[in-house]
Write a protein that binds this DNA or RNA. Structure first.
Length: 177
DNA sequence: TAGGCCATCTGGTCCT
DNA sequence: AGGACCAGATGGCCTA
């Protein structure tokens, strides 16, 4: 049986993500004309008046060209958002969650991902007594984090060369992509 | 029907 | 200069 809601949902999907399966959102070729001009109609009030120079510049560009650039820019923005959504989808697929039949919202995805990472980190540390697999993303804070971790694991027994060995050992154990 | 969630448009700002 | 990024605005769909 097809519910009214289902039909409406399908219509929605066709409008926003043509020819795509429900959960995988990425439209590369089609899309530029499919939905232009019927959604956002925003006028920013607070910032609008702040740049007279910009306004004058814009008036010097003829309307047709401005329109064209706007359309191109919209298309790029759409593609960018599609990429972002793909990334969200990829993230959803690696997060275990209770209601598997229900699609996680973006905020739920991020929150669960954060919790999941915390949980995995704790588990790994517990299992390996101080094994920290990847610090690559930590940037400048890398060594600080590493040192904090070292202190947690070894308390006051640290010596410089001991720490160096420890750090080397951890960096050897990066996951393989 | 209200509220949540989402896609899209849009103009400003940042970055290359 | 032009593209990427950002965030506000808007309106559609869905669910409780």
């Amino acid at each position: 049986m097809k519910s009214k809601a289902k039909i409406r949902k399908q219509r929605h999907l066709v409008t926003s993500d043509q020819e795509l399966p429900t959960e995988s959102i990425c439209s590369e070729q089609e899309g530029s004309e499919k939905s232009v001009g019927f959604r956002g109609r925003r006028r920013r009030k607070s910032i609008e008046s702040s740049s007279g120079d910009t306004k004058r510049k814009k008036q010097s560009i003829n309307a047709k060209e401005h329109n064209l650039r706007r359309l191109e820019s919209n298309e790029r923005e759409r593609q960018r958002m599609h990429k972002l959504n793909n990334a969200f989808q990829a993230l959803r697929e690696v997060i275990p969650h209770v209601k598997a039949e229900k699609k996680l919202s973006k905020i739920e995805t991020l929150t669960l991902a954060k919790n999941y990472i915390k949980c995995l980190t704790t588990t790994i540390l517990n299992m390996s007594n101080g094994y920290l697999p990847d610090l690559e993303g930590a940037g400048p804070a890398n060594s600080t984090i590493l040192y904090q971790h070292y202190q947690q694991q070894h308390g006051d027994e640290d010596r410089d060369d001991h720490f160096t060995k420890y750090s080397t050992q951890i960096h050897k154990c990066r996951p393989v992509n």
